[in-house]
Amino acid sequence: MRVEMTIITNNPLVNQARYKNVAKVFVETGNIQGVLLRTRDFIHKGHKLLSHPLSGSLKPNENPYKSIIISSNADGLEFDHLIMIEKGIETTEKFFRGKELPKYKPATDHDFMVIDKSIVESGLKNNGGA
């Protein structure tokens, strides 16, 4: 299998799904910050950011789930991508300072998973994955 993309996610629905040529890293975290931090580690190691870290137009303190797509290959630090993920982390911290992530009822929690999955899949479909 030629693995070109890697999804870093804390979304169980994305983790369970099967995508062609796509690897997954599951991060056990209840908010998106953990996913952003893990992604930053990969960017430092030379992986490229393929999807925007703040995809979805959902504010970080409202959305419990995040899936970020990076290149599976690591071939040198892309500084612009590091800035982008750092900005994502900074923005997320800013939102958490004002208001913590609410405890959602199961149905709403599931809706957030569905939306995140759909956003990831729309990106994959447009870029030769899924």
Binding site: L50, S51, H52, G56, V120, S122, G123, N126, N127
Partner: peptide, 8 residues
């Protein structure tokens, strides 16, 4: 306004 940086 797509999610992939390549699209952007």
């Amino acid at each position: 306004e797509n999610v992939f940086l390549a699209d952007k």
